[in-house]
Amino acid sequence: MTGRDSVDGLWAPQALRIANKVQESTDVFSFELELEQSFDIRPGQFNMLYAFGKGEVPISMSAGPPTTTRLVHTIRNVGKITTDICAREPGEEIELRGPFGNTWPLESALGGDVVIVAGGIGLAPMRPVIQALLANLEQYRRISVVCGARSPYELIFREDVEEWSARRDLDFHATVDIAPRGWTGTVGVVTSVIEQLSFEPQRTTVMTCGPEIMMRFTADAFCDRGVPAESIFLSMERNMKCAVGFCGHCMYGPHIICRDGPVFRYSRLRDLLHIREL
């Protein structure tokens, strides 16, 4: 007969040992997970991380380039599942299944200017892209990164940020909404920084990840400066349960975010982003 003797591969999580845990801010932690077998995940894609008996959360890979030994996820402690995961320590395990979703357009961006705009925890899915760009600098023209946060305390990946700020081959900007004394970066929303960037609009690829409202204003700002909407990429987020388009939770108008995204061209989102409660 047709009985199944094993858990459907789609749903079966694999356990990975935590090799290292880094506290990125008050409530954000990065976990480096040991890989015993190669795990083909690319920048933009995500895994479903499981908390025993509590549920799953979709989390993007947050460091690259893809290596055969380490998989990195950066998680903000916001609910019961992420609280459970964030409490784990090196030596313990995290169960996950994946990878799911599509990737950032690193290939189609080749040969042109690239601008990365990240807001808050949105820097996590962007870090592997920045790392890949820096590893292949000669294949791109000007590379700019704008990184926004509510305050410097919420800025994640501080070591990377310091390194990126110091580089001359990277046009790096960090900006915060609220600055304490001693902050030497910019104060203001990311769009105010976009006005100062140099790029050749027709040869520019923009990749942005952050709160939806930030991404929308970012995309519009680049459109205003002449970047085609087809060359602006946003990473979208909705509630996800299955991660493969079967459960219907992450529908966004014509798109199923887990299956068709999470990375979308702005040309495919522009008419949707202004619709309330979509």
């Binding site: 908390a51 008996g53 299955c242 459960c247």
Partner: peptide
């Protein structure tokens, strides 16, 4: 076709 996924434990955890 929409479905929800519910994760739970028994009383022993």
């Amino acid at each position: 076709f929409c479905t929800d996924i519910e994760d739970a434990t028994d009383i022993t955890g």
